[in-house]
């Protein structure tokens, strides 16, 4: 299945969920809304047969007041790769967990929770994974501040003025 066909299939099923869709470097890249993302993931895994979740990554977009979770999905049997970006509001970063589909998402989602504070509902064991359990704040958010963290003077994206998040 080529990337165009993948894109077509997803678009025909979930047309109103999709914000952007393009084919880049042989990859189907989609940005979708957070409401029905689990169904789309299930469609990708069970009906399109892309059963190998390569990577799950959180991204912080403070300018858009949004958080993003990026799923890189592929298959060991068929060509074609999918990059699925899901946007959730930054104030309430809640998202359904995809652990029932891909068990590898377990630790990836814990990491995203740990470093971005994205809450994955239905996750079996959502705890911090890399940081200590009593850590305050989510370091990979763009507005994260820590007195031990020294940004380089030429940093053009210095957070500046944003109060440090206080509770987990």
């Amino acid at each position: 299945m080529t990337a165009e066909e993948i894109l077509q299939q997803i678009q025909s099923r979930f047309s109103e969920e999709i914000r952007t869709a393009e084919v880049r470097r042989g990859e189907a890249c989609l940005t979708i809304k957070g409401d029905r993302h689990f169904e789309i993931c299930r469609f990708v895994k069970e009906e399109l047969g892309y059963d190998y979740l390569n990577c799950l990554s959180g991204v912080d977009w403070p300018a858009d007041e949004e958080m993003e979770v990026v799923y890189a999905v592929s298959s060991l049997k068929r060509p074609g790769k999918i990059l699925l970006r899901v946007r959730v509001p930054r104030k309430e970063p809640f998202l359904l967990s995809v652990v029932p589909l891909w068990r590898t998402a377990d630790w990836h989602e814990r990491e995203a929770f740990d470093l971005f504070g994205i809450r994955f509902e239905n996750h079996p064991d959502l705890r911090r994974i890399l940081l200590p359990e009593d850590w305050i704040g989510y370091p990979l958010r763009k507005d994260y501040q820590d007195e031990r963290f020294i940004a380089y003077p030429w940093d053009d994206r210095k957070p500046g003025g944003v109060p440090r998040p206080t509770s987990a």
Binding site: L115, R128, L130, L131, P139, L140, Y144, F149
Partner: peptide
């Protein structure tokens, strides 16, 4: 996480 140094940050 004992050697976590937030490589990505």
């Amino acid at each position: 996480g004992y050697m976590h140094r937030c490589h990505e940050k």
